[in-house]
């Protein structure tokens, strides 16, 4: 009886959150699922069209362009961030002068809103007057023609995204590294481990759970990449730098095709779920393997 009462109390406590999640995520998601099987635009009643939206999206070359762009940018961004974050975490943990100050410097980009960041970067990399462009020119290096070449556009988007989100990956890995007791390294040194062996046999395995968590979150965040692209290149030139979220936005609010936009949304969910599943499984296994018997 009291257990039942306790359960009711617990449910009552989490109910507000659950209610909000239901209202703003669950119901809209289901509505979008329903919508993805309808033909729908302004001033017209939704009409059931079966899987037509999905087949239209999947046969649209711009969708595939956007999917490939997304995949490339996400893979590059997440993995470069992981490597840089790991390197920086190890550097910080190895003892730096003025560590608190440097920490603030490294974390600063995370405090900058995406929109301000893009505006800043547009100025910095402006093809004619940007400081970075000028500096590259002065050094005799090629400049980024991000408004002209799609590859340059995607490159600068990836760079911006890494700059913005590196603090997240870094702080997770740095915290994980700090939680490894120093005596383990002393024991390893006595056991005969070289610095490389200490990294590979002690640090790396102990950081794997944190790395998986960081990557899972970054994959999910990176997959919904939107404002960096939208504000930087707008998906241009000629829709060549569109990513999935931009494609979806265009479908919905430029072409007013709510049905195909909804289908795109669900394809996005399925794709990121497929990715997350791999990491979730690994994390689950990791935790399961470490659980006390």
């Amino acid at each position: 009886m009291s257990e039942r009462k306790g359960l009711m109390g617990a449910l009552a406590l989490v109910a507000p959150v659950q209610a909000i999640v239901t209202l703003v995520i669950f119901i809209p998601a289901l509505y979008v699922l329903w919508l993805s099987f309808q033909s729908s635009t302004y001033g017209q009643a939704a009409q059931f069209v079966g899987l037509a939206n999905y087949s239209r999206v999947l046969s649209d070359p711009y969708f595939w362009r956007a999917l490939i762009n997304t995949a490339v940018v996400v893979l590059v961004v997440v993995h470069v961030e992981l490597l840089l974050g790991l390197g920086m975490a190890l550097l910080f943990a190895s003892g730096l002068v003025a560590r608190p100050l440097l920490l603030a410097v490294v974390l600063a980009p995370y405090a900058v809103s995406e929109v301000s960041a893009v505006v800043m970067w547009r100025f910095l990399f402006d093809p004619s007057i940007g400081i970075v462009t000028q500096a590259l020119l002065a050094l005799g290096l090629p400049t980024l023609e991000w408004a002209v070449f799609p590859s340059h556009g995607l490159f600068i988007v990836a760079l911006l995204s890494i700059w913005l989100h590196l603090p997240f990956t870094f702080i997770i890995l740095y915290a994980a590294r700090l939680s490894v007791p120093g005596e383990l390294y002393e024991a390893a040194a006595i056991d005969g481990a070289s610095p490389w062996a200490r990294f590979r046999r002690v640090t790396l395995p102990l950081l794997v759970p944190a790395m998986l968590i960081a990557m899972l979150f970054r994959y999910i965040f990176a997959f919904r990449l939107f404002s960096e692209v939208w504000l930087m290149t707008g998906g241009g030139p000629a829709r060549q730098t569109e990513v999935l979220a931009v494609y979806l936005y265009n479908e919905a609010f430029r072409y007013n095709q709510f049905g195909t936009a909804s289908a795109t949304g669900w394809l996005l969910v399925i794709a990121s779920l497929g990715l997350a599943l791999f990491y979730l499984r690994k994390i689950y296994k990791e935790m399961f393997a470490n659980a006390p018997a």
Partner: peptide, 20 residues
């Protein structure tokens, strides 16, 4: 000499076992 070449073994107060 570095620790590993001193031919010693150490037992730490915290045991310092590799958790993984």
């Amino acid at each position: 000499l570095p620790s590993k070449d001193r031919d010693i073994a150490m037992v730490f107060q915290s045991y310092a076992l590799y958790p993984h």
